[in-house]
């Protein structure tokens, strides 16, 4: 899920770069040197997972995994997603350098948001509850991603309302798929290593 180069208005590009830089600085500060490998490996995992194709009738779609990244990383999702998007822009020309700020915000803001939601809800978590919350987080993260993307399009030029609506509709199935995949993946992690999930230490 990327915005292509050339579409977004200059003011929005600049503003997003500034906001992304702020998020990066804060995210790096929250990360701390001992956690760099964790952020790096999850960033690489995000890079790999977004390659996964899920067949959908004659077409296919790609996972985005922002919910999962958000749950596991919190504010560190900013540097993790930024680096992965930077490499995708350079190596495969997905997105691009100028819209990198926009694409990072689209991905990272919902990720950070669902992290705090998940943490709040999971305090007294049973397995079933963790799974439901994770599913919700995965779906909401995609909804956030898509809404931000549509917002950026319309914000660039009101004439882009129709393509923005198209983006919203095209991503409806992904919301469900991401919800299910995030729920099951987090359930997998919960069974294998509950200590890796945020705020799980006090539960298990």
């Amino acid at each position: 899920m990327h915005v292509s180069e050339g579409i977004i208005a200059p003011a929005l590009l600049g503003g997003s770069w500034l906001a992304t830089m702020a998020g990066l600085v804060y995210g790096m500060r929250r990360t701390g040197p001992a956690k760099i490998p964790r952020v790096a490996l999850l960033s690489a995992a995000f890079f790999v997972v977004t390659f996964v194709r899920i067949p959908l009738g004659p077409a296919h779609m790609h996972l985005v995994a922002t919910g999962l990244i958000g749950i596991l990383l919190g504010w560190s999702a900013f540097p993790a997603l930024f680096v992965a998007l930077l490499l995708q822009a350079i190596l495969f020309q997905y997105g691009g350098l100028a819209v990198l700020g926009v694409n990072t915000l689209i991905m990272a803001l919902p990720a950070v948001t669902v992290h705090y939601g998940f943490r709040l809800g999971v305090r007294r978590g049973t397995h079933a509850r963790v799974m439901w919350l994770a599913g919700l987080a995965g779906a909401l993260a995609v909804i956030g991603n898509v809404l931000l993307m549509a917002g950026f399009l319309v914000g660039s030029d009101p004439a882009f309302a129709a393509p923005a609506l198209g983006v919203l509709i095209a991503h409806l199935p992904l919301i469900v798929v991401e919800g299910v995949v995030t729920a099951l993946a987090v359930s997998f992690l919960y069974k294998a290593r509950p200590d890796l999930l945020p705020h799980m230490e006090m539960v298990s």
Partner: peptide, 13 residues
């Protein structure tokens, strides 16, 4: 797919 994603994230962590 979800199990594959979970397994990949687990190994990464």
């Amino acid at each position: 797919h979800a199990v594959a994603v979970g397994a990949l994230f687990l190994r990464s962590l």
